[in-house]
Design a protein around this nucleic acid. Structure first.
Length: 816
RNA sequence: GCCGGGGUGGUGGAACGGCAGACACGAUGCCCUCAAAAGGCAUUGGGCUUCGGCCCGUGAGGGUUCGAAUCCCUCCCCCGGCACCA
């Protein structure tokens, strides 16, 4: 028998698996096996695999292999999210082309995944920066455009004056550019948006169907969509006759309105300031805010404001109240104007105190009396309406509905729902992305590039360094084109590219028919494979990618292209691998690469180390798990013992296998199966350790252990695929792969224990344990308990007032 | 502030309301070795012990129960998300 040597057996089986084309999903319609789509979030090719990849894909691979062995027809694909800013940054830094950098990383990651023995269907790989893929990204953009779900409008953005580019909100750290530290400024640009807000309610409602999603992800999606329900109320400006809508969740406080406040960008502000004679002060405030980055604006908490000098008429009582422009009012939310109710809203309260505005109590708390002059903060809670005309005495929350109904009757307002969710800004003034397939014609406006002219190819010869406009606009010929509609020769292509999140919003459809040349995906194949059975990936995508993908799926559903409304039925978020309490990153220099560990100890050891370290969904601190990189990992030693024990068991055969080992084997099969169904990899592995220990003991005692060794090898296959294959084919002598073998089943009769440990308690404290038959009756349990010497001693003659018996495991004698 | 998830030995973590700490890591002692690495064996929650055992112990405090890490209430702390959201 040889020593366990992963450096020999792992490459050997890697080659064999490749030759035998082991992991191919079958599209055959008559394939009787149930289909299972095991999807791992595809990687961004920004370097070689690190421990974060090892964690995610070790878990995802275990899920896929388990499904294979349980007789499923498994689709377990891999691809690359190839476009994006990191490639541009790296390319600029190294003086090479983003394409070169990206493809080199893809090659490297592909080699590493193969070295780790991932059970991917390699015939289905693609990457999103290939023209055969982004052609269909562009096609899908046009489908959304056709349906009015892609549109262009002027929007405020964060602009870095040094890098000369727009930044996403996530790329602005404390008001400064994350790349160069320059404070960003606000710049209004015409940008493309996807109208995800049309789907806000459905995205919210259907969350209820996602029963197998982590609670935290569902909560994050709900928070992000941010639905609030209330009323829209119409105010009129007394001096100009303009109508102003405000949104409120508390229409029951309408009688307490003492002012109206507008966002600085509100379209009426300039006009009203002029009408009220406050143009100078208002303009000063607005100009100052224009220069303030959006992200800083939202953090400012001043209660400054300028009185516009005009008055709004409160529709419920005809009162005239002052109008202000105030930075605390956001244009993007609600209607961009709010009614000020200082007594019952903290921000309005602070604003009123700052500007000497009246505070009027219109909601009475149950147990206290509110005195406007003595109040130190607003009373935002429920209570009965007072000083509110016809509604005096109406308690909340019914009052809200009652007032809303009344507003509708009176034609002064209506029930309204507002969302925090904004439309998705997808324009990027960057090079390394899919070009937006639109032509701008002086006569026809925005014209879709005809489908048969797709893809709009991303040219290679572009100076992609940041320079104040989209790099494609600087290309000598890219933008120059004729209008597909009228043939005008001075039309121009759109020179922006799409956000990379567009690419990743539909890649899981493409895997179902990756070579499809005439459409983005084959609807029949998508209908056969999807929705995804199990999606594995990091929680950092809890909102963006998962929300966008859900939106795409719903839009495609509405187009009649897919028969389902949700793409991912079950979702699991693996935890992060951190180091010394901090997240790993290249810039911190604490990123641990996976392949050196694979070379040193083997892929199986790395997988097991990670999966055994703790619950799959929890973070792993690598510094705690592997404090000394030169020390042999514990699971590597264990695999060595398993290797030796299975060889010995094969030689010893099955005769004379102890009954205890047989029972433990069946219980382990049961337990590991249940654990795998619930992603409890760490617990499953611990059970395999217990079984191998018991096997060792049986062998040392001269007994047989072959059935246990066979079962152990099969159960090990999802976690340590190479060693399992080696043991299955060599000492155990099978001539086909362990990964094509059937998952073992257990015999419930064997699992059932013959003897159990009866716990005997006195007053709830354990005083004795007795081995008894599994079918011992209540009467016998109680008798055995009472007869126990230890129990007698503790009782010391005291009487037993009550007996609780749970045969055959527990007797509790209560002395009362 | 609102929402979600947590708090168990030196460490990672186990535990259908029924023997808390499975399985590991680390540590200590011993064996093997010229030595080291590797490997093997033993011990390892705290305190007491007449060596039979006894007491305490799952963030804190209450409660339900024959019995609570587990269920309920109050509080503290940690992590994540959202947040001038009207």
């Amino acid at each position: 028998m040889r020593q366990y040597d992963p450096s020999e057996i792992e490459p050997k089986w890697q080659r064999t698996w490749e030759e035998e084309a082991l992991y191919r999903a079958s599209d055959a319609p008559d394939d009787p096996r149930p289909r299972f789509y095991a999807l791992d979030m595809f990687p961004y090719p920004s370097g070689d695999l690190h421990l974060g990849h090892a964690e995610a894909f070790s878990g995802g691979d275990a899920v896929a292999r388990f499904a294979w062995m349980r007789g499923h027809n498994v689709l377990h694909p891999i691809g690359w999210d190839g476009f994006g800013l990191p490639a541009e940054n790296a390319a600029i830094k190294r003086g090479i082309h983003p394409k070169e950098w990206t493809y080199a990383n893809i090659d490297q990651q592909r080699r590493s995944f193969k070295r780790m023995g991932m059970s991917f269907d390699w015939t289905r790989q693609f990457n999103t920066c290939g023209p055969e893929y982004y052609r269909w990204t562009q096609w899908l953009f046009l489908k959304l455009f056709e349906r009015g779900l892609a549109y262009r409008r002027l929007a405020p953005t964060n602009w870095c004056p040094k890098d000369q580019t727009v930044l996403a909100n996530e790329q602005v750290i404390n008001g400064a550019c994350e790349r160069c530290g320059t404070p960003v400024v606000r710049k209004d640009l015409v940008q493309w948006f996807f109208k995800i807000t049309d789907y806000a309610q459905r995205l919210l409602d259907d969350v209820d169907d996602l029963a197998d999603w982590p609670e935290r992800v569902i909560t994050m999606q709900r928070n992000w969509i941010g639905r609030s329900e209330g009323a829209q109320v119409d105010f009129e400006i007394a001096e100009t006759g303009d109508r102003v809508e405000v949104f409120t969740t508390r229409p029951d406080t309408l009688w307490g309105v003492t002012f109206l406040a507008f966002a600085p960008e509100h379209p009426l502000v300039t006009k009203l300031a002029e009408a009220g004679g406050a143009a100078g002060a208002a303009t000063e405030l607005i100009d100052r805010l224009q220069a303030t980055p959006l992200t800083n604006r939202e953090q400012a908490e001043s209660r400054e404001g300028v009185n516009l000098g005009v008055h709004a008429v409160n529709p419920v009582n005809g009162e005239k109240v002052a109008c202000f422009v105030a930075p605390y009012v956001l244009l993007e939310y609600g209607t961009g104007a709010v009614m000020g109710v200082p007594a019952h809203d903290q921000r309005d309260f602070e604003f009123a105190r700052e500007h000497g505005l009246p505070i009027r109590v219109v909601i009475a708390p149950e147990d206290t009396e509110l005195d406007p002059d003595a109040m130190t903060e607003a009373w935002p809670h429920e209570g009965a309406m007072v000083t509110s005309g016809p509604f005096d005495g109406t308690p909340s929350p019914e009052s809200i509905e009652a007032v809303t109904a009344w507003l509708e009757e009176q034609g002064k307002g209506r029930h309204a729902v507002t969302y925090r969710l904004r439309d998705w800004l997808i324009s990027r003034q960057r090079y390394w992305g899919a070009p937006i397939p639109i032509v701008h014609c002086p006569d026809c406006g925005e014209v879709a590039v005809p489908a048969d002219e797709l893809p709009v190819l991303l040219p290679d010869d572009v100076d992609f360094r940041p320079g104040g406009e989209s790099p494609l606009a600087r290309h000598p010929s890219f933008a120059t084109t004729t209008c597909p509609n009228c043939g005008r020769e001075d039309a121009r292509r759109d020179t922006d590219t799409m956000d990379t999140f567009v690419d990743s919003s539909w890649y899981f459809f493409r895997y179902c028919s990756p070579q499809e040349a005439g459409q983005p995906f084959d609807p029949e194949k998508v209908a056969a494979w999807m929705p995804v059975s199990q999606y594995t990936g990091g929680v950092e995508h809890a909102i963006l990618h998962l929300l966008y993908s859900r939106f795409f799926t719903k839009a495609l559903h509405d187009m009649g292209l897919v028969p389902f409304r949700e793409p991912f039925l079950r979702l699991i978020n693996q935890g992060q691998v951190i180091y010394g309490g901090a997240s790993m990153s290249k810039s911190k220099g604490n990123l641990v690469e996976a392949m050196p560990l694979v070379e040193r100890w083997g892929s199986d050891t790395l997988r097991l180390t990670i999966l055994f370290a703790g619950p799959f969904e929890d973070d792993i601190d690598w510094k705690l798990i592997a404090p000394d990189p030169n020390r042999r990992p514990g699971v590597n030693s264990w695999l060595g013992r398993v290797h030796a024990a299975v060889f010995e068991a094969a030689a010893a055969g099955g005769d004379g296998e102890p009954v205890e080992l047989r029972r433990l084997t069946h219980r382990t099969i049961k337990g590991v199966t249940e654990d795998l169904e619930r992603f409890r990899f760490n617990v499953a592995i611990s059970k395999l350790m217990v079984l191998s220990n018991e096997m060792r003991s049986a062998l040392d005692a001269g007994g047989g252990a072959l059935p246990a060794a066979e079962a152990l090898t099969l159960l090990l296959a999802p976690f340590a695929p190479y060693l399992a294959e080696e043991l299955w084919r060599e000492p155990l002598g099978h001539d086909t792969s362990v990964h094509l073998a059937s998952w073992p089943s257990f015999d419930p009769e064997v699992v059932r224990e013959e003897t159990v440990t009866l716990v005997v308690q006195v007053d709830g404290k354990v005083r004795d344990t007795i081995e008894v038959g599994a079918d011992t009756s209540s009467e016998d349990c109680e008798r055995l308990a009472r007869e126990s010497d230890k129990v007698q001693r503790v009782l010391a003659g005291r009487g037993v007032a009550r007996v609780v018996v749970r045969p055959p495991r527990l007797v509790n004698l209560v002395t009362g």
